[in-house]
Design a protein around this nucleic acid. Structure first.
Length: 138
DNA sequence: ATTCTGACTTGCT
DNA sequence: AAGCAAGCCAGAA
């Protein structure tokens, strides 16, 4: 994974406000580069310093392997939840997920500008590295 | 070039 | 609601 991509992903995630959340695929779409799996890979390897719990699966399931910790944070941030999260916290039983329909981050103007800046920076760094030897030529 | 592996998604039982 | 199959994108072997 290119460093610029990793940084772009982390920069975007850092912008997500408490109580809100987005899917892996949303981040990829915002950046206009890569896919959900790439974003997941970045979060897996470099996500510890940013609000990683605010990036999750498209159906609202928390990041695999961190359900417990993520749930505590969702409750703390009052992120909209569905299912038996209270029971899950007590007994470890029960299924739950983030109500992504209600929680999905809707960037305001200021946030949008910063997202845009990150996406543009990434886009430029990608172009810069593609000029010389181009495959597919011939 | 081919194959395998993922903090992924979507569509279909 | 829960599994499964396929599609998807990139890096690694």
């Amino acid at each position: 994974m290119r460093m610029e991509y990793v940084e772009a992903v982390l920069d975007v995630v850092a912008l997500i406000p408490a109580g809100a959340a987005v899917a892996y695929g949303d981040v990829a779409e915002i950046l206009g580069s890569g896919g959900a799996r790439q974003v997941g890979s970045v979060m897996s390897q470099h996500g510890s310093a940013v609000p990683w719990w605010r990036v999750l699966k498209a159906n609202g399931d928390a990041p695999p392997g961190h359900e417990r910790e993520a749930l505590a944070l969702y409750i703390l941030e009052e992120t909209p939840l569905l299912g038996s999260h209270a029971e899950y916290l007590r007994t470890g039983e029960g299924r739950w997920r983030v109500d992504l329909t209600a929680a999905r981050w809707a960037p305001n103007d200021g946030e949008f500008d910063r997202i845009d800046a990150v996406a543009e920076r990434l886009e430029r760094s990608v172009r810069k590295l593609s000029a010389p030897d181009d495959e597919m030529t011939v």
